[in-house]
Design a protein around this nucleic acid. Structure first.
Lengths: 266, 266
DNA sequence: GGTGTCTGTTCCGCAGAGCGGAACGCTATT
DNA sequence: AATAGCGTTCCGCTCTGCGGAACAGACACC
């Protein structure tokens, strides 16, 4: 039996999934440009096929070819998709006003993250009018074990997802990252009982953050909001910020149809 | 002979191009979500195939399915690609310093655009620290006939590309948009001789902009920089801004290997 | 300037992936 | 009940596209 490459059990089109894998290889690899052979050996697809996939993607502008070096890179068309995606998430517009208010109340940057492919991606942010403030990269993705937003997701995810992350590697992103499985489990249990997560430099040195999820009808977190900024400004006001944050996320959860006012209640 | 759907004459994979077309349909359509039948009839692909394409794309996070409404939308994974793409364009880092300087000198927003699939896409911007300023949406795409940046591209594109745009529709984006072919041709000729383009509200009402291309070794424009802001602040200083802009783009063109100091010379 | 070793690209015949018409289950609407 | 729309699934035949191998350049080494 050949290796199954599709995650769902559906009747899929292998060529499309391979093409997607090629695209993500550009995103995950350290190099910005890739050659045919490199892709072929990494993904274990024959050179001929890789070449045809690239030709097709190139045809649609999703990858670009540098004629000189004969090396491939992502094409500008991916921006068009990203722009359309960002326009489309109604969570963004629903939460925008609440995020601005939270930003004004705390005087710190407020971010929104969603989950994709086992990682967390920033989809929006509101920054305060201050000289020294934190800015995140919308579109950047991070693993689920490091940082407040990631922990907020992980704590409220299904046990299966949680197990999968916990049983994998927990690489140290900074010197403060929690890298032991048991420590992280204890931390996540605590996040669940109090309803929010905190990180002081676990994902980015010098950055402090408090994060809490917004739920929909089920108990599935649809997104996580975080308040983040320079760690020195954060250390002494974690509780205060967490209170403001929870007020915001609970109100949003209600808007998304979540019933059960206190997620901390048994 | 069935309709040819690939633009290049290469040996491509039809399934991948169809999948890409589905993705772009999300970006181009007015609705944020699409149903199987809708996609099927718009792209003239059988429902069964559309369904399988969507299953595959969903598997990789490129589209998302709202279980309730059974409607599809773009997925968060497109953000990951866009983020990687933006990291990858070295034009951005090369031009970043020059753009900041131009922004400081003019006290207006400076943007960078590239060409993709017959449209223009913003890939970067630098904004001045002012209360009233212009902000563009990085990733947003526009047609090639409206606005200063678009005209700057079109004027220096190959005659074939220019002809293709000029012989198509020239829809009015605002009341100021040039919609007559002959008017636009005259305008483009002028842009070519003086080296820069100007628009007062052609693409966005109330927005003024001056734009000029940066060339590589050949005479192909690799990107277009624009200085843009509220039209009232622009009307009286077009020439002044154009001078500063040209100094910047000519310096950048030299960095990209362009020889021929005055593109206006015969 | 041969000779070797990398690239990326093209060729072509065989095999099985995936196309598509039709059937199926749903949910609304009448 | 009946109709009409949707998304999903089925299955047999067909033609796409897989992949080993050959090819064409670009370097590097001696």
């Amino acid at each position: 039996m050949p290796t199954e490459n599709n995650r769902t059990g559906e009747r899929n089109v292998a060529a499309i999934e391979r093409a997607a894998d090629v695209l993500f290889l550009f995103a995950n690899s350290d190099n910005q440009t890739l050659g045919v052979t490199e892709i072929s050996s990494t993904l274990d697809i024959s050179k001929a096929v890789v070449h045809r996939i690239l030709a097709s993607l190139r045809d649609r502008g999703l990858v670009a070819l540098d004629e000189e070096s004969r090396r491939y890179s992502l094409g500008p068309a991916v921006l068009v998709l990203a722009d359309a995606y960002l326009d489309g998430i109604d969570q963004r517009s629903i939460a925008a006003a609440a995020m601005r208010r939270l930003c004004t109340a705390t005087n710190e940057t407020v971010t929104m993250s969603v989950l994709t492919g086992g990682r967390r991606v920033y989809v929006d942010q509101v920054t305060p009018p201050m000289e020294v403030k934190m800015t995140v990269q919308v579109g950047a993705s991070y693993p689920l074990h490091a940082g407040a937003s990631s922990k907020a997701f992980l704590a409220f995810e299904s046990p299966e997802v949680r197990d999968q992350v916990l049983s994998g590697d927990l690489p140290a992103v900074t010197s403060e990252t929690i890298t032991s499985r048991s420590d992280l489990e204890r931390e996540l249990a605590e996040v669940r009982t109090r309803g929010w997560a905190v990180s002081l430099g676990e994902r980015e040195s010098g950055a402090g953050s408090v994060a809490a999820p917004v739920f929909d009808q089920g108990d599935v977190p649809v997104m996580v909001l975080s308040v983040c900024g320079p760690v020195e400004r954060f250390r002494d006001r974690v509780e205060e910020v967490a209170g403001l944050l929870l007020t915001t996320t609970e109100e949003l959860s209600r808007q998304f149809g979540h019933r059960e006012p206190s997620p901390a209640g048994h």
